[in-house]
Nucleic acid binder design. Structure first.
Lengths: 243, 243
DNA sequence: CGCGCAATTGATTGATGTCAATTGGAGTGG
DNA sequence: CCACTCCAATTGACATCAATCAATTGCGCG
């Protein structure tokens, strides 16, 4: 324990509720099986029945729903500290896959160990529940983004979200962060063609609201970007509440 | 208790796991505050902090994310037996609203009572968790639908989903069910214009895969419709598993 | 230096939104 | 039972948006 594997997850949860010493100890003593993945590799396969759930430690991963003709929709982007696959504990059979967007590291915790920890602390159990319910809230926001926002606004909205999420786990500076996602992957996030994503990126650059060079995004004016993109951070649940 | 308010919810859960006698008793003894709503009324307001969660008994309701200019995206459609707002228990602040699509009835159960029941049965707590995690899986499927399916396929996909869900709670016949949702509401579900929804409806009718008169939809060939619409029911979790 | 992937561009086709009527059907009052 | 109203469904014409196709450019890395 205290080897830091769970630090980012703890940061994440601590932004939403106070964790007791017992909760922290239980988390840190979870048996964690560290694995590394190369960009493009699958962490969890669609239709599989995982016996353990993965928590991302390093790099980025995506959940994707696959279509029969090979197209896919990315339904979530995950960053260090996200307990990505807690859903599998209740769902039993994966309705989607999780794969590495960059080289990444994740720890796998068996469902047996998670059940045991939850029995010792009902509150910790609720924290796990909370984590999946925030995922659901993000799914809703992504739905609205795809369904109702113009392409440029979709981009701005995602940038606001990712900036805040990276900030929580200490991976953003005052006004910039790294987003190692290709435009092709973004096209699967936004339900657009690659070409159109590219045009949206350029259009967003022209607004002057952001600078985007390589994988580094610098936000010139977060409030203005949020307004421009109809971004309301409520769904990220970044407030401490007893839960 | 045993007044039937929770029957549809129990049907729903029983299709996913075995409920013990204790679980059933706990559910049926939950203090339930019945309320009626007229079409268009709000059951739960965006940004509110509900102290209780609602379970739909009769009629249909929709979750919707609102945009500043009045547009909205419907992120879920709910039918009798759906414990619609369990999410609020963990989220504390609503990131979306729930409103009546038809006249409807719902019971409200206080979070205090739900916490108490969950303390008596960890398994029941997991059933509540499961319910929200299935919602998340549906959100993912809806994401893929909006992002990657053609308008006609989106319609077919929704029809498959609603048919199965209505079947579970005994509200569908062998091959038909009632879907009291206007094309205008469907446009907010699919992220399309009303006009285009109308054209998609007609196009789907022309395939002969369904008949749709008034609010009644008859499915001529479910397998063919599912194939046509890239519908894979995995995400609905319609299998019994110990959870 | 050259390979390979990602980003970018232009031209074109096809899909979807918008606008403006019109039709159809259920319910209401006379 | 008929006229009227309201709302949902439908239609056609047209403008826009976004996908597709086909290169080309730019950049990181061996």
């Amino acid at each position: 324990m205290a080897d830091g594997k769970f630090d980012a997850f703890i940061l994440n949860m601590s932004r939403r509720d106070v964790l007791s010493g017992q909760d922290l100890a239980l988390i840190n003593s979870l048996p964690a099986n560290l694995k590394s993945f190369r960009r493009g590799e699958e962490l969890v396969a669609e239709h599989s029945r995982p016996g353990s759930s993965c928590l991302l430690i390093k790099g980025m991963a995506a959940r994707a729903v696959q279509l029969s003709d090979g197209r896919q929709q990315i339904t979530a982007l995950h960053i260090p500290g996200d307990f990505v696959d807690l859903h599998a504990m209740m769902l039993k059979v994966m309705d989607h896959s999780v794969s590495a967007i960059t080289d990444c590291q994740a720890v796998f915790v068996s469902h047996r160990a998670l059940y045991a920890a939850m029995e010792k602390s009902l509150h910790l159990g609720r924290m796990f529940w909370l984590s999946t319910v925030i995922d659901a809230a993000m799914h809703r926001a992504w739905n609205a983004r795809i369904g109702r926002l113009a392409p440029v606004a979709r981009l701005g909205h995602l940038i606001c979200e990712m900036y805040l999420r990276f900030s929580v786990v200490g991976l953003a500076t005052e006004n910039s962060f790294g987003l190692p996602v290709t435009q092709n992957e973004l096209s699967d996030v936004f339900g657009l063609s690659v070409v159109h994503v590219n045009r949206a990126v350029q259009q967003l650059r022209r607004t002057g609201l952001i600078t985007w060079k390589g994988t580094t995004i610098r936000i010139a004016d977060l409030d203005a970007l949020a307004k421009f993109s109809e971004f309301d951070p409520t769904y990220l649940n970044l407030f401490i509440e007893p839960r």
